[in-house]
Every structure is written in structure tokens, then in C-alpha cells.
Write a protein that binds this DNA or RNA. Structure first.
Length: 436
RNA sequence: GGAGAUAUGGCACAAUCUGGUACUGCAGCGGACUCGAAAUCCGUCGAGCCGUCGUAUGGCGGUGUGCGGGUUCAAAUCCCGCUAUCUCCUCCA
């Protein structure tokens, strides 16, 4: 949620900033007109309430003196009725303003590239392992035997998309045998790395209520993409960002504890409503996938540097796994709803000859904190909204996909990255797994 | 899932039956005493949010007794719905 006072006071600047975020011109003006109407009514109704309070005090006093107050009471009956009507109108206006404001995306930070979509994204840096020449390297020249990860997985018998579809539907899968072990190794490795970097490991609820979904900005605008629990006003989380960030909703955090960093593995559920037909095969786009998430609560002056730290925490996982990646800064038109600034880490997927998003790290500044009422006491002793950040660290399924493709061998086996071997009993290779 | 109880300022609690300025203590803040501190005494303060005025410390008004409604000139108090917590039962991993 944006600060209404800011929008009011900086009408022109804000209109431009929102336009960059893809908000239609005139939206802000309409909202502020409603807000103006609302504030005028507040002044009126509050004046009447002040009168009513005064009259009530007089009636109470008269009754204590055993005097008759029926005249004053019947007079106030009219006022009470008027107040009630005005309060109703005010509540409607209030709801309209809130609803409109709740649909406005966050305003981008000043150094975010301005543009309509992903074409305006800017590459920050690029990394590839030094020993890369000896491995599959579609960056230079893809060997003829290069296979996409889903073929590797199916050939090895470690990924079963068919039975996933049979039992659940399209975009669900079973990991089998070494596939399941590899997935588990990957997220254990990630959690351990983040813990070393100071993140507190959490296991969260994976079903949350509507107010939590509102708090992080998924609701009301993106309700259609959520897996709702039937009849319960609860939702299967689309990301652990929701329960992790809402952990402190409504709370005031001790300033000396900031920044606070959380990490959690969770399944993530997405309807992928707008993605029909895209990435239909493999681990790239599923209705349910595992993700290790990072969340930070920071003082406003620290949130920019914390975003860089978090992005590096995500990138470091890929470096330790020996997977090539690059980091891009999303343009104003490509950022998510709640973000003020976003770095995407994209991993190399050789079979598709592209970098694919594997982590998205965002600073939402006070946008989520305003919705959730998370504050701290600043140096002047005043309550101030904290800044919240979130990032994937990383999408586990996509990491497995990247490992399968980048570490595949001509004979159909896959070499296990060294850092994962301790998590797999020292195993060095994925061979064909027989199963039933 | 069933029964009962509870929800009031940072904490602990009173007022709820009988509607009318939300009591008191601790903590906080200021002061006195003291070389200083503790103890004691005096004073003061009750979140947050919204509106408005002001350059500002802030003033004024509204709201605020778990949440949402209702009755009333007026609701902590009466009525309806909900949520959370506790105890007992039931069920379980």
C-alpha cells in the first residue's frame, strides 16, 4: 500500500511514477478526488460527533442532578440519525478509497530502469564457472547429444511427469529415487548456506488467511492465481514470503534486532492462470514446486544494501553449485506488484539456450509493512514502518533442472555437483534408477 | 467435534449484574531528598490510527475496552455474529 499522504502531496510526481509502473493515467486523479470527498465528509461528521459528545455529557450531568433531560434527548435523536447516515456514506467512501489504493502497485526506486516490459531490463553482471569448458557449454557450442532436463529425468527414471498428471493433473510431478534425493540435497544445501549467512531457519504454515495474502500484496489484485481452500477463506501459499513476512504483522520490532533475516523451505502453489501453453514440459512451470525463500526486515536506511546482500546470497548458491548465471535489474514495467526494486538471478538452461529466472529478490520498502503494520522505533523514538525484502534462494525445482542440464554427460548420466555429494552419501553420479 | 471460562493502556487488574468523565498498582517520564544510588515522597503521562491547524516540539477534534454488527441521546457495560486463548471431554500423529 502506498502512502496516501505522499500521493496527495506529490500528485504530479506520483502520477508519473505510477504511469511508469503501468497504471493508467487518470487512476490516481480519480482516487484523490474520492479521497478529497472523504476528507470533507470526515470534517463534517466529526464536528457533529463533537457536538453529540458534548450534549451527552450534559445529559449525563443533568441525570445525576435528577433533572429532566427529555428535551435534550429528543433533540439529539435527530442528530444521531444524521450522524448514522453520514457514517454510512463515509464507510462506503472509505472502502472505495482503500480498494482503489490497494490496487496501486509500489512506486519504483529512482535508479530502476524505466520501460514497458522485460525489454528494458538491465544486466548487472554475469558469472560462469572457470572449469566450464570441460562441461556442457551451450554458451559457445551445444553438443548434438544435449538433452532437455525432462528427457534426462525421464530417461534416468527420476522424474515422473506422466504419473503426476494422472494423479493430480498437468504441471504436477513425482520425483523418484535419486530424483527425490537430489531435490532434498539441493534444498538442504541451500538452507545450510543461508543459515551460515545469518538467516533464521523457519518452517511455516503453508495455508494462510486472507489478511496475510493482503499483507504481502497478493490480494486483492491477484486472487485469481491463488489456490484457495474451498469454503475456508484460506489459501495455499504461492511463496513462503507470505507466512515469513506476515510473521511480524501488527508488531513493533526492537530497533537493535534489525535487520532480521528468515529463510524457509516450502512448497509453493500457483495456478499459472495466464501461462496456458507456456513451458508445459519439465520442471520450469509447475502448480506445486519447492522453494527456499529469504525474507528480511530492515531499517529504511539499510534496505538498499540489504537487497544487494540478499541477491548475492542467492547468487552464491549458484556459484557453489557451479551453475552459470547472470543478474538483471527489472524495469519498472516488469517488476512485481509490491516491489520497489527487483534483481532477478537467472540460471543458464542450455537446452533452451536461455537464462531462466531462478530467483527474484525485491525490496518492497514500506509497501508491505504499511499493509501489515510492522514498525520499529527510530532514533527519535518515533514509530516508523520497517522495510521488508524477499527473495528466492532458490527455486528448488528449477535448480534441479539446471543441474541436470548443465552437468549431463554424453552417456546419459549426470555428474552430481561436488557441494551436494555430502548430502547424497558421497554419490558422484546419477545413473539410471530402476523403479516399479 | 462437544461443554465451560476468558479477552480492558507496556505489564497486572477494577468497573460489566444496575449503560452516563475506564479505578488502582507496577513500569515510564519530570522533580524533591541524597556526595551518589536505593528506598521514600510529590507531580505527570496511557498505545495506535484518522482529520485539521502550525515551520516545529505540539494544539484541537474524532476514534479507540479482542474483531464485526445492532439497540440507545449515550455502550467496557445490553443484544447478535465471529476469532483467539485457557480448562475438561472427544479424537488423534
Amino acid at each position: 500500500m502506498l502512502d496516501l499522504k505522499y500521493l496527495r502531496k506529490n500528485k504530479e510526481t506520483a502520477a508519473k511514477q505510477l504511469q511508469d509502473r503501468g497504471v493508467e493515467t487518470g487512476t490516481l486523479e480519480a482516487l484523490l478526488a474520492k479521497d478529497e470527498e472523504r476528507r470533507t465528509l470526515i470534517a463534517k461528521v466529526e464536528e457533529m460527533k463533537a457536538k453529540r459528545n458534548e450534549a451527552s455529557d450534559k445529559i449525563a450531568f443533568a441525570k445525576r442532578q435528577k433533572e429532566d433531560a427529555s428535551e435534550a434527548i429528543s433533540e439529539m435523536q435527530k442528530v444521531a440519525k444524521e450522524i448514522k447516515e453520514m457514517d454510512q456514506t463515509l464507510a462506503d467512501l472509505d472502502a472505495e478509497v482503500k480498494e482503489a489504493a490497494a490496487h496501486l502497485p509500489n512506486i519504483a526506486e529512482a535508479d530502476v530502469p524505466v520501460g514497458p516490459d522485460e525489454s528494458a531490463n538491465v544486466e548487472m553482471r554475469k558469472w560462469e564457472p572457470t572449469d566450464y569448458e570441460g562441461r556442457v557449454h551451450a554458451l559457445t557450442e551445444a553438443p548434438a547429444w544435449l538433452k532437455p532436463h525432462y528427457e534426462i529425468g525421464e530417461d534416468l527414471g527420476i522424474l515422473d511427469f506422466e504419473r503426476g498428471a494422472k494423479v493430480s493433473g498437468a504441471r504436477f510431478l513425482y520425483y523418484v529415487g535419486d530424483g527425490a534425493r537430489l531435490e532434498r540435497a539441493v534444498y538442504n544445501f541451500m538452507l545450510d548456506e543461508h543459515r551460515k549467512e545469518g538467516y533464521t531457519e523457519m518452517i511455516t504454515p503453508i495455508v494462510v488467511n486472507d489478511s496475510a495474502m493482503f499483507g504481502t500484496g497478493q490480494y486483492p489484485k491477484f486472487k485469481d492465481d491463488a489456490y484457495r481452500v474451498r469454503d475456508l477463506d484460506q489459501t495455499y501459499i504461492p511463496t513462503a514470503e507470505v507466512p515469513l513476512t506476515n510473521y511480524y504483522s501488527g508488531e513493533t520490532l526492537p530497533a537493535e534486532d534489525l535487520p532480521i533475516s528468515f529463510t524457509a523451505l516450502s512448497p509453493s502453489f500457483r495456478k499459472e492462470a495466464g501461462a496456458a501453453g507456456r513451458d508445459t514440459r519439465g520442471l520450469i512451470r509447475l502448480h506445486q514446486f519447492n522453494k527456499v525463500e529469504m525474507v528480511k526486515f530492515a531499517k529504511p536506511e539499510d534496505s538498499d544494501s540489504e537487497l544487494e546482500i540478499m541477491t548475492n546470497n542467492a547468487a552464491n548458491i549458484l556459484e557453489k553449485l557451479g551453475l552459470p548465471y547472470h543478474i538483471i535489474t527489472l524495469s519498472t514495467g516488469d517488476m512485481g506488484f509490491s516491489a520497489a526494486k527487483t534483481h532477478d538471478v537467472e540460471v543458464w538452461i542450455p537446452a533452451q539456450n536461455v537464462y531462466r529466472e531462478i530467483s527474484s529478490c525485491s525490496n518492497t520498502r514500506d509497501f508491505q509493512a504499511r499493509r501489515m503494520h510492522i514498525t520499529y522505533r527510530n532514533d527519535e523514538g518515533k514509530l516508523e514502518l520497517v522495510h521488508t525484502l524477499n527473495g528466492s534462494g532458490l527455486a528448488v525445482g528449477r535448480t534441479v533442472a539446471a543441474i541436470l542440464e548443465n552437468y549431463q554427460n554424453e552417456d546419459g548420466t549426470v555428474t552430481i555437483p561436488e557441494v551436494l555429494r555430502p548430502y547424497m552419501g558421497g554419490q558422484e553420479k546419477l545413473n539410471k534408477t530402476p523403479h516399479h
